[in-house]
Design a binder for these strands. Structure first.
Lengths: 218, 218
DNA sequence: ATGTAAAGTTGACGATGACAAGTTGTCAAC
DNA sequence: GTTGACAACTTGTCATCGTCAACTTTACAT
């Protein structure tokens, strides 16, 4: 195998075409959304022929599935990292909330694909593995909360609630901002700056925690 | 204009082609997801030529936008209807939660499109109007809660939280069920039946209410 | 050096979205 | 009751797309 030489873009063998293709796909989806994705355009941007991706990813679902797996890896890594330095279970969960939406904010293309059963192969081993690991990280944070509070919190239920809320926030945030801007300008507030998605995630996190702690107290 | 004659499918003029095209699109998206949508296949299923949809919807974004508007209409109608007969503000909100996911369950094709900025024209007047009305219905339910409790609930924040949670639940529910089935069969429970999405929405609704009431008490 | 497999290319096929131009049906005005 | 004129639909075309098959180039092991 040739050494990965970044300056060797003119060679017949690319060096690391899979990586280049994924990068091009991310760029394309970030620009035009999942519906604007096309294998040929990706190949074009990577500077290779239209059939080159086949040898690495099979078909378009293969490439998008690889992207989804990468997204779940990012998510898992971010959730693990966010837990470091937490001062309490509640603090850890709020950090997880921030981390979740940060990943979506930093990797919108990956997230545009991760839960799209019609685009990827959800039963792909890598996809499933890292998705499960990310879920487990959230569940373990909730277990810590349960143990810390000595409550009978239903971890599975709570995990579903938290994940749902963050996922919904990611999808709806642009529309929320738009609505708030319209509302603010109608009210005459011109210098309105919408709250960042991370800050919003944190506030939602506190609200979720309040509900989870209250109704399940020991 | 010819009368809408349902038995006149062999005529040159269709009768109500827009409706037939939307129905075909719903069927197609329900079968294959948003990525499997194609204008020509829709035309084929409606029994007209491949260019017929152009005269009614312009391009594919036009047809999908019409579907999205219809989806927001359904959503608004369901939220309004669900509020009838509520015994309290909290009860009303839980009913709204059920209604939200019911719409997604009953009209998956519409919901697969409603928040997809890359497929539809989100600034379409009809789309925006009915989306806003649906949002207002939720906000009004939360105002009722605030007034009933005499709290200083931030209605905008609460509405964003609730909508996010329900939207996330709709997207993630299939994956949740899959995970639970795997978990249950591993544990030896064969006759496992997953909780319906409506019941789950109701439980999430109660948890959200707990959080919203607790931290904002007057 | 040489053979073989991986990596990339070219070419082809049917399908798609969009557009242009032509047909067919309907209705109002005279 | 003919004649416009407009709406509704069709046919044809074009560039593009995903996928497949067949071919060429490179790298590496022997």
């Amino acid at each position: 195998m040739p050494a990965a030489d970044p300056a060797a873009s003119s060679r017949y063998h690319h060096g690391d075409l899979p990586r280049a293709l994924k990068a091009a796909a991310v760029e394309l989806i970030t620009e035009k959304g999942a519906a604007g994705f096309s294998l040929r355009e990706v190949a074009r941007r990577a500077g290779v022929s239209h059939a080159a991706p086949t040898h690495h990813f099979g078909d378009s679902a293969g490439l998008l599935t690889a992207l989804a797996e990468e997204g779940f890896r990012y998510l898992h890594a971010a959730l693990v990292e966010s837990a470091e330095g937490a001062t309490s279970a509640a603090d850890r969960l709020v950090r997880i909330a921030r981390a979740y939406v940060s990943v979506a904010h930093d990797h919108p293309a990956h997230c545009a694909v991760m839960f799209r059963a019609d685009l990827i192969r959800r039963d792909d081993p890598g996809c499933r593995e890292w998705g499960d690991k990310a879920y487990q990280e959230l569940a373990s944070g909730l277990e810590a909360l349960r143990d810390e509070e000595g409550s009978n919190l239903d971890v599975g239920e709570a995990a579903g609630l938290c994940w749902s809320t963050m996922q919904g926030l990611v999808v709806l945030y642009p529309g929320m901002v738009e609505r708030e801007i319209k509302h603010a300008t109608e009210a005459g507030a011109e210098g309105y700056r919408p709250e960042s998605i991370e800050d919003r995630a944190e506030r939602y996190g506190y609200l979720l925690l309040a509900g989870l702690s209250r109704s399940r107290g020991a």
